[in-house]
Nucleic acid binder design. Structure first.
Length: 281
DNA sequence: AATGGACCTGATAAC
DNA sequence: CTGTACAGGTCCATA
């Protein structure tokens, strides 16, 4: 095991983990979290001025990439503030240290299918039962955890099995998309970006525009992908005086307004709106 | 092209 | 206390 550090001025484990982009983490004690992705685990500990990341030695580069540590968030926040939009200014202040993760593609795709019309505690329960049932048991730093299951294991189960884990009507989508992933891999999205990538992702059962944007942003580094859910739609009405109700139109409004990094700013806006929905700005 | 209803489930709020 | 609306939507059926 090794530990590397990163200044916490632009790395807040709490904001990064709790903003809703991932569901596979759990607090352990004060200011510490066990974070899981694919078949790997790491431990985050926050101190006064830095975050300590502990993982297997072979996984250091993986987690540096996972937490997006090569990206300059100081510059991104400056860019956000330069728009002169009050709610965005407040959002980046509130969510300072939030970083966009670079997640495992298959795990992200299936997790966000599960997330639709669902709440976070339940999503976490669904996914942890899924991993416990089909994943591989491992141990890291004294903690037991289950890996995210392989596509082989996932694809051999049917809708009824996923229903038994509590996924509800999403069980059908997880079964079908797992099979598609096993058969085709990511060949249908390979090399695609932007709108083409989004369109290819919506070809998976259970993936519509919103979930396709989430997967683009969280697993394909599509920094312009701007997921529009109920909170963003509300933000659009309340903070931008928007009149459109079509979520694709709302998506275009924000992408045109905030440009190539719109998706990153979306996470700050979403986190702020969900946590501080009552705030004046 | 756009609009509306069905869909699993359970934690939480609201009376 | 029992009921209901709602959760980071998607899909399918209609005019």
């Amino acid at each position: 095991m090794i530990t590397f550090t990163f200044p916490n001025e632009y790395f807040s484990p709490k904001a990064t983990l709790e903003c809703g982009q991932t569901f596979r983490f759990s607090p352990c004690g004060e200011s510490a979290w066990l974070v899981l992705c694919a078949d790997k685990a790491c431990l985050l500990k926050e101190y006064a001025a830095e975050v300590h990341v502990s993982c297997e030695e072979a996984d250091e580069q993986y987690f540096r990439g996972y937490f997006d540590l090569e990206t300059d968030y100081a510059a991104l926040l400056k860019e956000a503030e330069a728009f002169g939009v009050p709610v965005l200014f407040e959002a980046v202040r509130f969510g300072r240290g939030l970083r966009i993760l670079n997640q495992d593609k298959a795990e992200c795709l299936l997790s966000f299918i599960v997330s639709q019309q669902n709440n976070i505690p339940r999503i976490k329960g669904n996914l942890s039962r899924l991993c416990a049932a089909l994943g591989e048991k491992k141990r890291f730093a004294g903690y037991d955890y289950y890996t995210f299951p392989s596509l082989e294991r996932l694809a051999e189960r049917d809708e009824d099995f996923y229903r038994s884990l509590g996924l509800g009507y999403r069980a059908r989508y997880v079964a079908a998309s797992s099979k598609k992933l096993l058969e085709e891999g990511f060949s249908s999205v390979e090399g695609k970006t932007g709108a083409e990538l989004k369109r290819a992702l919506t070809a998976y059962p259970g993936i519509g525009n919103k979930v396709a944007d989430c997967i683009s942003l969280f697993a394909f580094r599509e920094t312009a992908a701007f997921p529009v859910d109920t909170w963003i739609a509300r933000l659009y009405r309340e903070n931008f005086g928007g009149a459109e109700t079509d979520r694709e139109k709302i998506n275009r409004f924000f992408v045109e307004k905030f440009g190539p990094n719109a998706g990153i700013f979306q996470q700050y806006l979403f986190y702020y709106k969900r946590e501080r929905g009552d705030a004046a700005v």
